[in-house]
Nucleic acid binder design. Sequence first.
DNA 1: GTCGACATGTAACCAGTTACATGATTAA
DNA 2: TTAATCATGTAACTGGTTACATGTCGAC
Lengths: 201, 201
Amino acid sequence: MPSDTQTPSLPATSFAVLGLLSFRPMSGYDLKLFADRSIGHFYWSPAKSQIYAELRRLKLAELVTEELVEQDSRPDKRVYAITATGRAMLANWVSASSFEQDVFKSTLMLRVFLGRSADPVALINLLQQNLDFENDRLVELRGMEQQCLVSDGDAMFSLLTIRAGIYLTQAAIKWSEESMKALEVHAAATGTGSTEGGKTQ
Amino acid sequence: MPSDTQTPSLPATSFAVLGLLSFRPMSGYDLKLFADRSIGHFYWSPAKSQIYAELRRLKLAELVTEELVEQDSRPDKRVYAITATGRAMLANWVSASSFEQDVFKSTLMLRVFLGRSADPVALINLLQQNLDFENDRLVELRGMEQQCLVSDGDAMFSLLTIRAGIYLTQAAIKWSEESMKALEVHAAATGTGSTEGGKTQ
DNA sequence: GTCGACATGTAACCAGTTACATGATTAA
DNA sequence: TTAATCATGTAACTGGTTACATGTCGAC
């Protein structure tokens, strides 16, 4: 029936915001906090300026309603709630029959690819930084995984995305370790780096 | 010595192009082809319009030189070559002491996170699509890995980035399979999908 | 003569970020 | 009074994409 009455084709970001509002009505401020600690962990966190922009757009498209809530112990705020149309649009987008390619860009990988133009030791340092970072991230994700496991109810979908983060992080850790080893062998073989003289800066 | 005589702070894309030119001089057209089959496999492939734009920028910054090459069997072309300054800038960027966060955005993960708003069966189909895609990709990467292993010389850095792709893809495959299973159990438990009546569209 | 590879670009647009700007309320 | 949290936005910019536009040359 609805076929293409309208397909303004909103970007994924809009659906991210709309999707968060499907959990409960929120203000832009709340949304930013909620986004950072939910989809922020696997996807990304839009800047607050963008969240406010998305809310205006969603309101214009009548996918959410805006209500001015006056508070006495805090500044007034605008609370947004998803509409029936919004829920329908959301369900439609989430259950789409095909999906966009992932976007993945790693300047670390680019640097490694261009490694012949670099000091191997510097590259090893970068990989160590990355390893530390990914290890921390893994601990954090493990904590979140536990929280999901003890909670009941809707936690399943969160759990799945956390698991994605865990597997991806494990892969990154494995890669960093392996690459560091390879570069150490390479540095030793070509005699670059620490064995060499000064060259501090 | 050079400290900060200039740090125009070019984006990673500029260094990607500059880095490719460090292998050999190329035209914009060549660069696009080369990018797609090198950094395109792990990082991303800039649109050709952007490559030409980057070349203009790099030329302006005197990191590359432009030479008009007249051809008789083909249209004339502009061939770009990295300069000494360019090589220095590149080496500096590649061996930086810190690096930018990876950019990773997956609308599939977003959809899974918002899965409670969707038909589980549709979600399972999406995961199956993803699984097929990642499996193909893994085969492709394995092929590239073999090519690196049989070739000698500079192949090491390529090999490392291919391995990154392999580990990441394996993680994605594991996740897709696991998530599909979880969603099937969920669909069966809540009685959504195939057991239900019509609801074709 | 027209198709495909080679070759280079422009214009319009859009998603998204950072920095800036404002202001209420409360607790220290 | 001053800092922190709550709260909402604007302006300027940039990185990047798609669609469009143009043209050479060789092969069929």
